[in-house]
Amino acid sequence: MSATKAPVKKHNGPRESLFSRSGAMLVMAICTFYFLIPIWWLFVAATKDRGDFTSSAPLWFADFNLVENIVNLANYRDGLFFQWMLNSILYAGAGAAVATLFATMMGYALAKYSFRGRETLFNVVLGGVLVPATALALPLFLVFSQVGATNTFWSVFLPSIVSPFGVYLARIYATSSVPDELVEAARIDGSGEVRTFFTVATRLMTPAMVTIFLFQFVTIWNNFFLPLIMLRDEKLFPVTLGLYIWNSQVNQIPEIRAYVIIGALLSIIPLIIAFLSLQRFWRSGLGTGALK
């Protein structure tokens, strides 16, 4: 680059060369193709009837049968698939909401109060971040089978409302974005500690809370090992486990393949909606740390 001998350009900093700009855009284009083609294929495949699925071009539409496919799926085995979707929404939606509340309370307490054993507690929770959900599936099964509670809604729901990573995020965020002076001011105004948390702190911590909610929602929605090991009753299945079971039956029941494909498409829509609609929050949630 020749920025040194062109002082006119200097006020904007050096301009990037055409070569590096087109190189960068080429990388972006190839990656877009890689990341979006499978989803595009799934969408196209979900609009086809059984004949077109095997005979027409896989990446373009034949007769548009998306609605018929959804209706067929809803009629198949009394709408079992939509029962699974409902279960997943309940496990993930309610689970993530409760997990976010508890993790935020815990993180706020760790950031804003000093009490005996605080650092020990935080380190134990951090250790929990390093214990992945899959490693706990079998131990949780052992615990629930001691009390005869496997194969219940609670056996999948209760373990998923604990989010050590949420506590970690909430603590960091509360430290940087809830000023001590503000908490102190609320205290002088006579606001109780709990009320200060719910009226002042949660408002300032909203970006962090949305981030925790989303990540926990995805974690629960994607959870597979725990329901696989806990549940026998297919009416309790989340959508991932249900589609897994159907997919493993494709060889015996060929017509089920169409249901797997349309079901797979429908199962990713709630997550895409959640991410798009809450984008504004989770983007700032991980980024901002500056406190003025």
Partner: peptide
């Protein structure tokens, strides 16, 4: 207040992380 804030998470964490 601290007890109120840390109790729910701590109890669940003990039951579903440490106990298992």
């Amino acid at each position: 207040a601290v007890l109120f804030f840390i109790a729910p998470f701590s109890i669940l964490f003990s039951l579903f992380y440490i106990l298992p």
